[in-house]
């Protein structure tokens, strides 16, 4: 069977990085990475919006000049009128494809081609088809979804490009309360952007010193880093058309190059995993969700599955 090789999508930066770092990071992605499309825009906390705003236009320009498609991400949790207004304006005015991360965006984007982010609950093809009827043309499935579900949803929903979250600490929860600010003696309304002190999240350990989770503002992320490598073959074979890599505070050009090589069959899964551990040593790798296990688990694969197809 001839299988199209999936392309690479870079997800939005979930962390608060300082403005210059965020801009320069994207400039380098534009110039050096094999990503085909890049999603940008504050997704976790509306209070952070002003950090990236001054640079959005130049980042888009640089990415597009390099031939990449740019998508604009919406907020994951929308409660304030100011936040609703942002999404309404984006849905109405954006010249770029918008990626919806909450229900309000889904409603507002009806009739306009859009993408669905991994923070929207798409667990089955009934939901995926409904979203497709409402003009969704791309869907990045939630990290929690096991492969058995991915396969069914993709095969039962023709006409939609599916992505799978294949690299990065996983978004596990979001709250109205900011545990990150609280841990530093602040509350959300007077947080002084203390989450910016932890560009790769603030570790949460158990009382027995086990690394467990990390805080990223109002979002809770996994300590482990999702790494689907030995699984890329079966994902491509079932029709997944893009692989999403979620930016961590590491060399994302190297990460993207590794995934591109793995997808192209230039490197085996075991070797890719070894290299990935060196590029991003801060977090152990996991792939448990894909295998229907606990998300933190690492399931070693048989060696022959790296390049199915």
């Amino acid at each position: 069977m001839d299988i199209a090789r999936p392309s690479l999508t870079m997800g939005p930066v979930y962390y608060l990085w300082d403005s210059a770092k965020w801009r320069d990071f994207h400039f380098r992605i534009a110039e050096e990475s094999p990503f085909e499309r890049v999603v940008i825009g504050e997704t976790v906390c509306s209070k952070r919006q002003h950090f990236i705003e001054p640079h959005i236009a130049e980042v888009i320009e640089r990415l597009e000049d390099a031939g990449k498609t740019v998508l604009l991400s919406t907020l994951a949790l929308v409660t304030l009128e100011r936040e609703s207004r942002l999404i309404r304006e984006l849905a109405r005015d954006s010249q770029h494809m918008v990626e919806a991360n909450d229900l309000s965006a889904l409603g507002l984007l009806n009739g306009k081609a859009h993408s669905i982010g991994p923070l929207v609950n798409v667990y089955n093809s009934a939901t995926a088809r409904l979203l497709a009827e409402r003009s969704a043309c791309r869907i990045c499935l939630p990290p929690e979804l096991p492969f058995s579900s991915v396969k069914r949803v993709v095969s039962e929903t023709p006409g939609v490009d599916f992505e799978v979250f294949a690299f990065g600490r996983m978004p596990l929860a979001i709250s109205a309360r900011c545990a990150h600010a609280r841990s530093k003696g602040k509350i959300k309304d007077n947080c002084q952007f203390v989450c910016g002190e932890d560009p790769d999240g603030l570790p949460v350990r158990t009382l027995d010193r086990q690394s467990f989770l990390a805080l990223n503002g109002v979002q809770t992320i996994s300590h482990t880093c999702q790494a689907l490598l030995g699984e890329l073959g079966e994902l491509a074979a079932c029709g997944v058309s893009a692989i999403r890599l979620s930016p961590q505070d590491c060399d994302m050009v190297a990460v993207a190059t590794l995934y591109r090589d793995a997808l192209d069959g230039n490197i085996g899964a075991d070797e890719a995993a070894e290299k990935l551990r060196r590029v991003y040593p801060a977090a152990p790798l996991s792939n448990g969700f894909h295998h229907g296990r606990e998300g933190a688990a690492w399931v070693a694969r048989a060696r022959d599955t790296a390049h199915a197809g």
């Binding site: 409660t79 609703s84 909450d102 309000s104 965006a105």
Partner: peptide, 8 residues
């Protein structure tokens, strides 16, 4: 969690 989501 908001007006647009609920009315959708």
């Amino acid at each position: 969690s908001n007006v647009d989501a609920i009315n959708f």
